[in-house]
Design a protein around this nucleic acid. Structure first.
Length: 739
DNA sequence: AGCCCGTCGGTTTTT
DNA sequence: CCGACGGGCT
């Protein structure tokens, strides 16, 4: 949410406006993007240029134009983003907007493949695999093909193998081509990798499993090869909007082309300077190819930044201006004030952590809420030291982009039972739960599963299996439980039945810290209780997994945000710290060799720095401890070292204690204009003056008059150009008009 | 001999 | 928290 957007240039114009959006809410370029309803549109939106706002307003506009929300498709990068946009549009317009179909490419593909998947050989109860599931299958195949065991040379790990397989899919390249060009050191293993690829793909088909890539690929295939489905889907989604288009890959672009092909009402929004997902096959040049997919595309550029101060923008502009290739122009801002970004060369990692924690504590004492500050970093583990420091100082924080709850072993255990209930062919899950039996290892599991190969009802067939003496008892108990589960209806009672069996195993398996894990199991039960379908619960565990390390619900939810830069995409904070900006860590030494990856790291830093509204702190440790405990000197990341002097204020250890009234300490907290969200309820502060008869202004509907207060927080407002609306003052951004 | 299970070092980024 | 490794069980 942004501070004041400058008013429309044409206010007071005498031509009567159709499609009126409330004045003062959108600039001309945004307005054009919002009101262009038909035909293809490409919006190149710089960081902080009101991209989300534009999408939200357009959503509301479409619905107000009488387009049925069911006919609108909003494709976003995370599910959170789409929920947020839909709910903001609902506040702007009305609850009708909630019927808009919104989600990630993967979640939409999932929904439609449940219905149309039979065209590509999948039953509707297929299971979605997350990353570690996929790696598990690669491992199973590796050992069953006896690859990489006895050889003298090191065969690549399952992680690398999967990177290669997935890379080939997402970059739409042949396996050998990819290996020769990007994994040349692994060319000697190409034959084995290729064998794994074939078996991996067959295994998934045989057992009703789809990984993330399959969701996209099969969805694309159905659309491409089955004209009736394509027509049905395209007809259903008459208006398509795609956010973060710079991070889509070719398969996703093809999906958009197929859905939008019938009517061409497609809007893509993105910024090539913020493309940071090439490892997933995204190519920032794709965004420039959009007009090729949709001829006669109208191009709109949003170049005014409403987020950051001009001095922060000068630095971020300088960072991105050194990019080798880009299309967007330099951003400008009219937000004055605030100091220059601060660059802190810390003595070492501990000093860096202390600096960040102290600074945050001091800003917090000056009145800045913790949730308006964030610390960003390249990799998840970069924040470990800081987490300790924050804990010591009792500063509450919330970590994003860390381990997911569903990636922890005990949760995966429980999920495996559920997955088998939905899809008895899921041998990956069978593998997992059979391994839990005492004295049963990989070899024994393979023998067991051989005997039920391809039968429709493994549970009943397994009952005839001759189990080994040592594990017969638990094996039989497990099968009894599975039989019970298959007859039960409510997921919560199924959960209880699973725990009846699993609890003793669980306590034995995780003897050291099972109380902590127990809480997570309880948490899982609560989550399951919120679903009415087991299938959709399981889908979400892969497509929208809850973060781990959840806390007991606390009343005050003010917490500092720690986040990987990737997970910070699209977000903003008043104060942003970016840490570990040392050469070798950022860019990571992994990327240094490849110019394309090196450039992506630069964009990553750009994304990080453009999250800041009023204060930006950049830091790096001058010294780090190498694996052999020797101390290593670190230099500043080249992305910052190459900047002209004067853009940032440099600080060294010790300097920030001897204040001396310098610029650094002068960076005071100036409260920004509050958004309606986190200000106290309107009924208390300004709300006193909302009453029947007063003139008000709404961001979308324009000026109107309150005709009736339904209660202290709900107003009925008549807008001349939009009619009577019921608005909740807690959410709707309503201003008084002095008349 | 085959297999299971405990211990010890390294870890991009995400749907 | 995964993979490699070696001890020890069947």
């Amino acid at each position: 949410m942004q501070p004041t957007l400058f008013p429309l240039q044409n206010t007071g114009s005498d031509e009567p406006q159709k499609n009126i959006i409330g004045e003062g809410s959108l600039n001309p370029a945004q307005l054009e993007a919002v009101t262009t309803v038909d035909g293809p549109v490409l919006v190149i939106a710089g960081a902080g240029s009101g991209k989300t706002r534009t999408l939200v307003y357009r959503l509301a506009h479409l619905v107000e134009q009488g387009i049925s929300p069911e006919n609108i498709l909003l494709l976003t990068f995370t599910r959170k983003a789409s929920q947020e946009m839909v709910s903001r549009a609902s506040m702007l317009m009305d609850d009708n907007c909630r019927k808009v179909m919104g989600g990630t490419f993967h979640s939409i593909a999932n929904l439609l493949l449940r219905r149309y998947g039979h065209h590509v050989g999948f039953a509707p109860n297929f299971t979605i695999l997350d990353r570690s599931d996929s790696e598990g299958i690669v491992n199973l195949i590796k050992s069953s093909l006896e690859i990489g065991s006895g050889e003298s040379k090191r065969f690549p790990s399952k992680r690398i193998i999967l990177n290669i397989l997935s890379g080939a899919v997402n970059k739409s390249r042949q396996l050998d081509d990819l290996v020769y060009n990007h994994y040349s050191h692994l060319v000697e293993f190409l034959d084995d990798i290729s064998r794994i690829q074939k078996h991996y793909s067959q295994f998934k088909k045989d057992h009703g499993l789809m990984d993330y890539d399959d969701l996209l690929v099969y969805f694309r295939d159905v659309l491409a090869n089955v004209p009736e489905v394509r027509a049905e889907v395209s007809n259903r989604f008459q208006y398509v909007m795609v956010d973060e288009y710079q991070d889509t890959n070719r398969i996703q672009a093809e999906i958009v082309r197929h859905i939008g092909g019938g009517h061409n009402n497609v809007m893509a929004v993105g910024d090539d300077s913020q493309s940071i997902y090439s490892f997933r096959g995204a190519d920032f040049r794709n965004i420039m190819d959009f007009p090729k997919l949709f001829p006669d595309t109208k191009m709109i550029r949003l170049e005014e930044n409403y987020r950051s101060t001009q001095s922060i923008l000068e630095t971020t502009n300088a960072i991105i201006s050194r990019a080798q290739e880009r299309y967007t122009k330099t951003l400008f801002s009219s937000i004055e004030g605030g100091g220059r970004p601060v660059l802190y060369g810390a003595k070492d990692e501990s000093d860096q952590a202390r600096f960040v924690a102290k600074k945050i504590a001091s800003l917090h004492n000056q009145g800045r809420p913790l949730k308006d500050m964030a610390v960003l970093f390249r990799s998840g583990f970069h924040s470990y030291k800081l987490e300790l420091e924050l804990t010591n100082r009792h500063i509450r924080f919330e970590k994003r982009g860390g381990l997911k709850l569903t990636e922890t072993a005990h949760i995966k255990d429980v999920l495996s039972f559920f997955r088998i209930i939905c899809n008895e062919q899921d041998y990956l899950s069978w593998n997992r739960i059979l391994l839990q039996l005492p004295k049963v290892g990989p070899k024994t599991v393979q023998k067991i599963l051989e005997t039920v190969k391809m039968v429709d009802d493994p549970v009943s067939v397994l009952k005839t299996f001759q189990a080994g003496k040592t594990w017969k008892q638990p094996f039989v108990e497990m099968l009894e439980m599975m039989t019970d589960l298959l007859q039960m209806q409510s997921p919560v009672s199924q959960f209880d039945r699973i725990l009846e069996y699993y609890q003793p195993l669980f306590e034995r398996l995780y003897a050291d810290d099972f109380p902590r894990r127990q809480k997570e199991l309880d948490h899982l039960k609560n989550i399951i209780g919120e679903y009415d379908s087991l299938q959709s619960f399981l889908d979400d565990t892969a497509l929208d997994p809850p973060e781990t390390g959840f806390e007991a619900p606390e009343l005050e939810d003010d917490a500092l945000i720690l986040s990987t830069i990737h997970s910070a995409k699209g977000l903003e904070w008043d104060t942003v710290f970016v840490i570990h900006l040392a050469d070798g860590k950022f860019p990571s030494s992994h990327s240094a060799a490849d110019p394309e990856q090196y450039e992506e790291e630069r964009r990553l830093l750009y994304v990080a720095a453009t999250r800041a509204k009023s204060e930006l702190f950049l830091s790096y440790p001058r010294e780090s401890v190498a694996p052999d405990r020797s101390r290593q000197y670190c230099s500043l990341t080249p992305f910052l070292a190459e900047l002209p002097s004067g853009l940032v204020v440099s600080r060294k250890p010790g300097m920030f204690q001897s204040s001396g009234g310098e610029n650094f300490e002068a960076a005071r907290y100036i409260p920004r204009k509050k958004t309606s969200h986190n200000s106290s309820p309107a009924g208390k502060t300004e709300g006193q003056s909302f009453h029947e008869g007063v003139a008000v202004r709404h961001g979308f509907f324009g000026e109107g008059r309150i005709t009736h207060m339904k209660d202290s927080r709900t107003a009925e407002v008549y807008f001349p150009r939009h009619g009577l609306k019921i608005l909740r003052l807690d959410y709707a951004k309503l201003e008084l008009v002095n008349s």
